[in-house]
């Protein structure tokens, strides 16, 4: 059968390790790909040429205006109670400090509630958040909202403990947001180790003074592109199964895991199908999003441009949680669609991954899912994901070619079968 042929080609056949090799070629050559950077545009051009060379159809770029934030030089030094140079990483969209930096005493808090209790002490201080890691979703609010909450009580900067379950003195960056009518203060992340140490120092009654310097700048929006390629359906060419990952990353590590690998297994899904000479009934469309990390900027542009055809989208798929050994496919859709997807997952028995779970989502496909289109995301072994996420550790060394083979095979079988069914997935 078709499913077995796809799996064999990806896992044991000529295509084994191809997605890993394609990814290493991209990220070793270009490195990280921050929104607005020349590196991201270079990556988009490389991918555009590669998709053409791969023989995919309708390869094209769709223009998007994207945020352009630059990190600049950064440093953080503890002056009291002892001299200690700390690892620091500015958060996306943060303003910089004045050229000479900010020297201020520290107020350590462990939650927003704790900050509000200590609000009267915050004026003129640098707030250090030492929030425990509960889960990414629960804890990331300290990164996104930490600066606003600190500024509201008069702080001059915010330092947020990195949102990670495990640290080997690694700062983890990510997006933060300002709020209208609240002063903008510099926001950066620090390591778990330094956040915990400052919490201990503060609880022992030491006064902590630090010097923070950040050269971050918010520049005018830049030109970028969503990268698109297709295998055009032979029977219902105007109907679409969308397969995707995002090509941009933060400016640290190589952006290999987040989300170069997701982008590459999505490409691989189309390559596997094409290599087998298969052509589904409806169109398989690969979209490599730009500026996901800045809040799904490229995917919003795509949604606004294409939503008029929303009734023609059978399924939207995004891989943005790593490409480690797959555990399940997460799916959001009607009960009828779920029953169909459960049947499709049975085809993945040779991969030993037949679970269909609720909660299919992704920053770039959520616009479609919220509008009623069935959506699917790859769930893999997440034990390592948030340890490397948005850090210098996000490199090829995290990835395993054999696990990527399995992820690509799963992705290709699901995309192909849904695209080849006689009918689109039913909606509520």
């Amino acid at each position: 059968g078709v499913a077995k042929a796809i799996i064999n080609l990806a896992v044991d056949g000529k295509a084994q390790n191809r997605s890993y090799e394609r990814l290493s070629l991209l990220v070793d050559t270009v490195g990280p790909r921050l929104s607005g950077s020349r590196d991201l545009e270079k990556a988009i051009q490389i991918m555009y040429r590669s998709l053409l060379e791969d023989g995919l159809q309708h390869v094209h770029l769709e223009p998007v205006r994207v945020p352009h934030w630059e990190r600049g030089e950064e440093s953080l030094i503890m002056l009291e109670p002892r001299i200690h140079t700390m690892a620091v990483m500015g958060l996306g969209s943060s303003i910089g400090t004045p050229p000479n930096g900010i020297t201020a005493p520290v107020l350590v808090v462990n939650s927003f509630e704790d900050l509000h209790k200590k609000a009267l002490e915050a004026l003129g201080k640098i707030v250090v958040y030492n929030q425990p890691f509960v889960s990414y979703q629960d804890t990331v609010k300290y990164r996104t909202r930490g600066a606003v909450q600190a500024a509201e009580v008069g702080a001059v900067a915010a330092l947020v403990r990195s949102v990670t379950p495990l640290s080997i003195y690694s700062p983890h960056t990510g997006m933060q947001e300002y709020q209208e009518n609240v002063p903008k203060i510099p926001a950066a992340c620090i390591t778990v180790e330094d956040a915990e140490m400052m919490a201990r120092m503060a609880s022992e009654g030491h006064q902590i003074i630090v010097h923070l310097k950040m050269g971050a700048r918010n520049l005018p929006e830049a030109d970028s592109f969503n990268t698109v390629a297709e295998i055009v359906g032979w029977k219902y060419p105007d109907e679409v199964v969308l397969v995707s990952g995002h090509l941009d990353s933060w400016d640290v590590g190589q952006g290999a895991m987040d989300d170069g690998a997701g982008a590459v297994i999505s490409w691989e899904a189309l390559s596997l199908i094409k290599d087998l000479g298969l052509r589904p009934k409806r169109t398989l469309r690969l979209v490599l999003w730009t500026a996901e990390e800045q809040g799904g900027i490229g995917s919003l542009q795509y949604f606004l441009l294409h939503k008029k055809n929303i009734s023609k989208y059978s399924l939207v798929m995004e891989s943005d949680l790593g490409t480690f050994l797959p555990i399940a496919l997460q799916f959001t859709g009607s009960e009828e669609a779920k029953a169909i997807m459960k049947n499709i997952m049975c085809l993945l028995q040779p991969l030993n991954t037949t679970q269909l779970l609720d909660g299919g989502e992704g920053t770039d496909i959520n616009y479609w899912i919220q509008a009623g289109v069935p959506g699917a995301s790859l769930l893999d072994d997440l034990s390592k994901y948030f340890t490397f996420h948005h850090s210098q550790g996000d490199t090829m060394s995290v990835l395993n070619p054999k696990e990527m083979n399995v992820a690509a095979a799963l992705w290709a079988v699901v995309a192909y079968v849904v695209a080849d069914l006689e009918e689109m997935l039913p909606r509520d």
Binding site: V2, A3, S311, E336, A339, L347, V413, E422, E423, M424
Partner: peptide, 24 residues
């Protein structure tokens, strides 16, 4: 949001299951 084509679907879930099984 609605897909008109499906609302007049000719296929039952059982028929869909048979169709999917053919990809094994």
């Amino acid at each position: 949001k609605a897909i008109r084509r499906y609302s007049s679907s000719r296929k039952t879930i059982q028929e869909m299951e048979e169709e999917i099984a053919s990809y094994r």
